[in-house]
Design a binder for these strands. Structure first.
Lengths: 238, 238
DNA sequence: CGCCGTATTGAGCGCTCTCAACGAGGGTGG
DNA sequence: CCACCCTCGTTGAGAGCGCTCAATACGGCG
């Protein structure tokens, strides 16, 4: 299982990103600046961290918990775009392009977030070439990922999209030390449906299809991938 | 018509980008560096500028003509992701994130491109804070655009996707001086289908639907938008 | 004039959505 | 402690959208 996992992981690289800003790469002085600027915020499960059309207030870095980034359309349909896990940063992009938030950020679990206010972050950015380059590199990679995802949504059916969604979530829910254990993907059916871009009913049916073929196992709200390689094949992303 | 056009244009901002690097914002010395680094390349219609899985060779800026960025899946299906027009830059993102090209770039018309080799571009980037910031701003905006497009493809039907596609192309095909004339969108049905993410036959049918409702007019391969505002409503992106 | 690539139209099928009913589980108040 | 409710999950049936296959029309070019 573990070897299979890692092969799936590799093929995913163009389809998945960790939005991590590695502060350790900054000069010491700048690291100190960051350390001083950080405040810690706590959010309960389902709490809204920010909403669409708000002004961005700063950068958030996840210390503990997971959050979802979603977009709600005028007709009420919800699309979950990303799930961020420990040590990932979010909320800063509209700061850079001077726009309003295009999405909601909502806590999937109880969360502890580090927060750096917009002015501190932008002040640092103006002076730090290293930070600029880190962000550039990260944004460029994410561009590739998003392009691949557009293709996925434009061209692929639900089985493929769900297979893909599960593979990505499998990485997000992996515990740092547990590379050799199948992660426990703990997410509501509704959220999973909105992430895969389908209806709740269809999601349940497709999940059942996967279960019958021993690709996943389900116990309560938790999903475990039994055969990531087969899912990768199914997702048709290679 | 013109007022309608400009209102559509505004609402499109979160769904559309001009990938322009404004060299004029750089210090004079850097502008000179760029000027010396540029070579001019010519490509015939349908010529491939670069292909998926190739190493990125440098930055291209369009002096004349239009190009399409497309992704081809293992099953042969093609998704056109962007169309770039005069003065837009492309091909540099995988340079920044040190990846292979995830897409093909193909000339839609006979083209004249300015080319800056990878090492020159990266050398400039290492020293130029202004360039870093320009790119950061641009990439962040594009991130927003892509996020919105994922939503579009994941949640919307063909009418909506085509309406949206036409609105974006309308901007791409607009002549610089002609803000008061409906642009002539000159693109093959197949390309348009691949851009809207549907089959050729379905595209033709949907286009006919638009024609019958006086939303567009067609003469040969050229399409003119008669009622951008109605298309905007139809696309449901407001 | 005939050929080839492109565009258009029709018919039938399969996937996915919606609507609707039912089941399971957890929390709350009587 | 149990009955109830409320949310979440599951299953079934039917409708509609969009796809594929196939046939026909159009238009430029040799």
């Amino acid at each position: 299982m573990e070897q299979l996992n890692s092969s799936a992981e590799q093929s995913l690289s163009g389809y998945h990103f960790n939005s991590v800003i590695d502060w350790k790469e900054l000069p010491i002085a700048e690291q100190e600046f960051v350390k001083d600027a950080i405040r810690v915020l706590k959010f309960k499960k389902k709490a809204v961290i920010y909403s669409m059309r708000e002004n961005p207030r700063g950068v958030y870095i996840i210390r503990k918990g997971k959050i979802k980034i979603e977009q709600v359309s005028y007709d009420g349909s919800v699309q979950i775009l990303f799930v961020y896990a420990e040590s990932e940063a979010f909320g800063f992009r509209p700061l850079l392009s001077n726009e309003l938030h295009p999405v909601n950020a909502v806590a999937l679990e109880d969360c502890e977030l580090e927060f750096i206010a917009a002015d501190s972050f932008l002040q640092l950015l103006r002076t730090s070439v290293t930070l600029s380059n880190l962000l550039l590199q990260s944004l460029s990679h994410e561009f590739t990922v998003l392009v691949n995802r557009i293709n996925l949504f434009a061209q692929r059916g639900i089985k493929e999209r769900l297979a893909f969604a599960l593979l990505v979530l499998n990485e997000k829910y992996r515990q740092p030390a547990d590379t050799d254990v199948a992660p426990e993907i703990k997410i509501s059916r509704t959220d999973l449906a909105n992430y895969a871009g389908t209806s709740l009913e269809n999601l349940v049916r497709t999940l059942k299809f996967f279960k019958e073929r021993k690709l996943v196992s389900v116990s309560g709200k938790s999903i475990f991938l039994l055969n990531p390689d087969a899912l990768l094949l199914l997702s048709g992303i290679q």
